[in-house]
């Protein structure tokens, strides 16, 4: 079983996230692998462990700091790490990013076929959830999204996804792109041995030229959307915190009544 996992470098959820010149500010000290991609790595490791053989590749597209994302995947147990970085990728939208990821995946797949690509359900910095779809389309592979469980047998991937009105079971032939939710599994903690090994493990570095991708077709010029303004939401005004001294419920109710909310 050969599985490639896409992992994104995102600002730490607990940190002060911000925008600089229309892009999410990303720096090495307050960012890491997108938390939801831990579920993707875990899903891949579990499938390889269950098969008793196979390899897991971690792939990221991003600036120099993004290497932290694939290092994290190595710490969790991924076997190979690939970091695609190129100044011309800056400002790429979801379709540009998908194109670069797809080119890198094809390069791995052409060397020795992959069975699956697993992604997280969303990047917690943007939450667009559109990348898996764009990636599958670019590769021309089937897509199974928002899997809260995933199994593979006889060349077919089967998932269950929880939609608001129904739980759906869907299947598709391999190779396929699968996005997993945080319900799919509980990511493992990296052990000390893996953390030490990940520090020294080689990371394959590719540029757009290595992938034969034209920068003009993926970067800011090709983007279909552009951030024209970003501003911090001011804190809520007139906030009050009241300690209940026996009439807390009345205070709450009166507040709602005054505001016309009850």
């Amino acid at each position: 079983m050969r599985i490639l996992v896409t992992v994104k470098f995102t600002p730490d959820l607990q940190s002060q996230r911000s925008f600089t010149d229309g892009s999410v500010t990303r720096t090495a000290d307050d960012g890491s692998m997108n938390e939801l991609d831990e579920n993707a790595v875990e899903a891949a490791l579990q499938l390889v462990e269950a098969a008793g053989e196979g390899e897991v590749y971690a792939l990221t597209v991003g600036g120099p700091d993004a290497v932290a994302a694939v290092r994290k995947a190595l710490q969790l147990g991924a076997h190979h790490a690939i970091h695609v970085s190129d100044a011309e990728i800056a400002g790429a939208d979801v379709f540009g990013t998908a194109k670069v990821l797809a080119a890198a995946i094809r390069k791995v797949h052409d060397e020795q076929p992959l069975d699956l690509v697993i992604t997280g359900m969303a990047a917690l910095d943007g939450l667009t959830s559109m990348l898996p779809t764009a990636l599958a389309a670019d590769l021309g592979w089937a897509q199974l999204t928002l899997a809260s469980s995933l199994s593979v047998a006889d060349g077919t991937a089967t998932i269950v996804r929880h939609m608001p009105d129904a739980h759906e079971t869907m299947s598709a032939p391999l190779p396929a792109v699968v996005s997993v939710t945080d319900e799919a599994n509980t990511p493992r903690y990296p052990n000390f041995k893996l953390i030490m090994a990940a520090r020294k493990a080689p990371v394959t570095q590719w540029s757009l030229a290595d992938l034969g991708v034209d920068g003009a077709s993926v970067g800011a010029i090709a983007a279909r959307t552009e951030v024209v303004d970003a501003s911090e939401v001011p804190p809520r005004e007139g906030r009050q915190v009241v300690t209940d001294t026996g009439d807390g419920g009345v205070v709450l109710a009166d507040f709602l009544i005054e505001r016309g909310l009850a």
Partner: peptide
């Protein structure tokens, strides 16, 4: 925490 205006080009 942030408001963003996006132009669909």
């Amino acid at each position: 925490t942030w408001n963003v205006t996006t132009r669909i080009v």
